[in-house]
Design a protein around this nucleic acid. Sequence first.
DNA 1: TTGTATGCGTTATCAG
DNA 2: CTGATAACGCATACAA
Lengths: 374, 374
Amino acid sequence: MKPDRDAVARRAGVSSATVSRVFNNPDSVSPERRSRVLAAARALGYRPNKYASALARSGSGQILFLDGNKLAAHDRPNAAFYASMYRQSLLAVLEVLQDSPYHLVIDGECSGVQGAEYEGIIVYDADTPEQIEALSAPGLPLVFGHHLRGLPGGRAWGYGVDNEAGGFLAARKLLDLGHRRIAYITGGLSEISSHRDRLRGFYSAMEQAPPDATPGLFPGNPGNQALPDPRKTQCSLLEVEVGPRGGRQAARDLRSRIQRGQITALGVVNDVTAFGLVQELLTLGIRIPRDVSVIAFDNLPILDLLPLRLATLDLCLAEVYRKAGQGLRDRIRRTVPGGSEPDGPGRGAADLIRPVYIPGDSLAPPASGGGRDE
Amino acid sequence: MKPDRDAVARRAGVSSATVSRVFNNPDSVSPERRSRVLAAARALGYRPNKYASALARSGSGQILFLDGNKLAAHDRPNAAFYASMYRQSLLAVLEVLQDSPYHLVIDGECSGVQGAEYEGIIVYDADTPEQIEALSAPGLPLVFGHHLRGLPGGRAWGYGVDNEAGGFLAARKLLDLGHRRIAYITGGLSEISSHRDRLRGFYSAMEQAPPDATPGLFPGNPGNQALPDPRKTQCSLLEVEVGPRGGRQAARDLRSRIQRGQITALGVVNDVTAFGLVQELLTLGIRIPRDVSVIAFDNLPILDLLPLRLATLDLCLAEVYRKAGQGLRDRIRRTVPGGSEPDGPGRGAADLIRPVYIPGDSLAPPASGGGRDE
DNA sequence: TTGTATGCGTTATCAG
DNA sequence: CTGATAACGCATACAA
């Protein structure tokens, strides 16, 4: 029924070992024969059998897609809203691994991480990379995805969202529209690195703001964080619980300042928080974007439940995880032969992908003509 | 490293073939030896290698998890809100298939359904079962999940949500609280069978309502559907576009009737629609549950974004898909040996699971003391 | 660079 | 009911 390696070999007039080499180590076979083999394979619709391959390699043939949420120290507060990201990421990895010799396995129990069950692990949204690196077998190629700056020094590799660039971009959008009285709403700064990164990026754009900018009206204090002094930036900072409830709280806290024109634009750490914020602002009779502009992060489906289209930044997780899949694939290859340390560009480091701006109806120039006047 | 079949055989003092039989056809080996083998296997932590197994069987060893949304005729309107269900279902199937000889493969391209790539298919949320049955190879065990009544007459099997029971349950909750002036909000009745089923169940509870019930105030007309005549039930019917926008529309349509006490409770076809409805009702100054009670279906995470907890029905998809996984597993077994028609209880039929009531703050007895007065 | 031969862990067939 | 033994489709050490 399905063509096997021997069929291809016969058709191409080579030995079956050569066919095998073409698929596993193409450089070790002469260009002329290689193309003959590839042609034959294509004609027959040949695709290597992953099972036989794994069996022959004495490998498991499995790559684990490990959900960091299952290992998280604390319960993720708004986890349920992020199922779409999970789906998106999973499908991206699957697409990449489609015609690799590996199967993607989704973690049922996290039990087998220790054992030699897998040939590599892709970690989805890990809370504490160190923990996972410690948990998994020493030789295992490990790829982290999602939000990451710096990774544990070891064998870990990562592909993630450039949250700092995202924060910068968000602030730039507001500044370019002419806003000068801006507040940033966030929370969980001590636990969640992505929140810190977004804030840092936001600040650094604000530091570049034109000199006519009005200083922050209520300088928040990120406290123990190694962040720029908000008094030097043009940005006010409001810390709340991250989530819809915190967003609603923020709306009540900012109400009078917005109504007096002391704040004309808001950056919000994520859509979930922005959701509550916008709900409550509208309830309080504050119009968006006329009275205040709002921009957030994540581009979640829940935005469709808001009466207006919120401007936000898409995290491009599909791209992140596509890269993660490819990266792992490459690293497995390099790990097998010599046992030599896998090199590649900057091991232990992370490739970051910049978020993309998604326009909405929540952004407009400040009402009172530019924000210079008192 | 990992124990193989021979290790188990040696330890149990039997041949390796016997070990194999214990795992594949337990009845064909004597009880005494069987228990010896099982003991040895447990002691060694032996688990059959799925790859070798598939290779030897000349099977693919793969079960396909096919996403019906990808084959849907029309774009699913509110699909993004249902990612959590996808995740939930997928994980349930994985759990069941954990120690079966099969791997779960998630559809990348739907390309291989024709080929003998898979040994079985689980179809997630299929729009048109007929289409999928036609598309897949004739011998393939096929299991459908999600919303289903009747299946194509052929080899298909299904496990789904008993939407009719859910509709009945929702109506009963309202009736038991004393409501007699009730409206049901739905849409897409001609395309979406689950919506019809919920309505049918809702109606049938209303037909049993006590004789003091006030007749429906604006008898809707489901038109071409084979549904009970709303004039005979105690229920008013409002058809809108399913989704947040339709929900908001419904709120505006019903506003005056609610304010005049002509309607005291609402059933809504799903949470997404209910979301818009509740948003708009609150905006219009209608209090929930004081002015009107609301109950919906699905128990989606988005309910956390509402300022009050909406009562709803959980679809228990985890259980549905756990059954689906087990069912498929059984069917594959029975299909292999004789080529005889797979029997099992009621082939071509569907096992339905009843939704479960999730309490909330959106339900209360009618304000004006029982609903009897004019 | 290429071909030959062996083994990967199971299942299934066939004698006993 | 049980035990040898031949596939299963492929990777790779080894020899050419």
